[in-house]
Design a protein around this nucleic acid. Structure first.
Lengths: 222, 222
DNA sequence: CCCGACTGTGAACGCTGTGTGAACTGGGCC
DNA sequence: GGCCCAGTTCACACAGCGTTCACAGTCGGG
């Protein structure tokens, strides 16, 4: 079994003790960037002593992934109100100090509902566009697309939900992983770059919905 | 909002107090059969005093529904081991006696992640008019309507409540988002534009109620 | 350390959608 | 029938939006 991802590094000793006694392997990271190349069935973010950093970490773990691993947040009882508005950043929370039995039960519940067990898609396809998520390769009409990292992530996100319109704010949050209301030009420029690389024939796959955002292709169940 | 489903009936007073103080409507049932015809955004099953019956209730709520509402289980700390093997029967659990703030936070989390809000395609339909809110596309008689942003929003607003008359002031407030008593001509012009785009056959879907405002279609229950 | 690639941002520009004033038409009342 | 008011329509100015470019900063590789 892949190790459970813990944050921060070093992780809280109480948490480590629970996992070790339960025989669950774990690995700790200091930042989301450290987690990027890891595969983990679940993540536990100890936000109790660093709420803001913890919330940011939980949100970053959600970024872009088509099938994000479930996230358990550890929070203080006094921070429960701060959960509002962040519900989509985590799957469960545990109030600390927590009884070890509860912490273990919650982790097991998370592991039992691990969506990666349902087999995350390894390929995103739409018409002749193929994104191989394992190799980070893209092609259209059988021709390889030379995409940069951000271009690939944006295209992946859009193409996974063909027909659906996403606002620039949603794209910044879900693809870029941050809330930044002044930076929407970023999205536009990346769309331009994608359109250029898709080529004239396919540039129209990414459509602008004026005053709303962008859409890729048509809905499959139209 | 539909009431939250509680079990058993009568429900635990602590639970009722939390929901009432939070302003969340609820209804209690004694069995899964009682819940069968109800629509509820979430269910809370108080299995702490009757574990076996509670577990059976949670399982029964899961049975058959394509899109089951999320279930929060209330359990004793001593029953945590009993959660094993039943993970797919519930979405979250809370150890009782629970702090009211935790109980409320868990219920709000469950409501915030209501799967029916994420997976149901959002569509406004009336006769042959279809507005797909995810794709921002509109069609009538199977023919696409090329609507601008404000036209789309106005049509969406009107068509969501067929038969109901809205004053220009209400439309400015609710569709345009501002109070501006001198700009009612704006509404009129957008209505004209919508009528033109709906075409001669369907232009009459938007009716003028003289000295009052505008109405779309007929009430469904009329 | 240097260089190249990537990324985000500010600015300029062209296009589209929107709101408003004015003219016209239709409905209701006397 | 005439008058007045409400609604329809037209035309246009311009605000806002999206596209594009260029450049500065950062990061990673050699």
């Amino acid at each position: 079994m892949d190790p459970i991802l813990l944050w921060p590094d070093p992780p809280p000793p109480d948490l480590v003790r629970v996992l070790d006694l339960a025989g669950l392997p774990w690995t700790a990271v200091a930042s989301e960037a450290d987690a990027r190349d890891l595969t983990y069935p679940a993540a536990v973010v100890a936000a109790d002593d660093q709420p803001e950093a913890g919330f940011a970490m939980a949100r970053a773990l959600r970024r872009g992934d088509l099938m994000p691993a479930p996230v358990l947040l550890l929070v203080r009882g006094t921070a429960l109100a701060d959960l509002d508005g962040r519900h989509e950043h985590f799957d469960d929370f545990c109030v600390t100090p927590a009884h070890p039995a509860e912490l273990e039960a919650r982790i097991r519940h998370l592991l039992a509902s691990d969506p990666s067990l349902e087999h995350a898609p390894e390929v995103v396809q739409y018409d002749t566009l193929v994104l191989n998520l394992e190799t980070y390769q893209a092609s259209i009409d059988g021709q390889p697309l030379d995409l940069t990292y951000m271009e690939y992530e944006l295209l992946k996100f859009l193409a996974a939900s063909p027909g659906r319109v996403f606002t620039r704010e949603i794209l910044l949050s879900r693809v870029w992983g941050y809330e930044y209301y002044g930076g929407a030009r970023t999205v536009d420029v990346h769309v331009r770059r994608l359109r250029a690389k898709l080529g004239e024939v396919h540039a129209g796959l990414i459509q602008t919905v004026r005053s709303v955002g962008y859409r890729f292709g048509e809905a499959r169940w139209g």
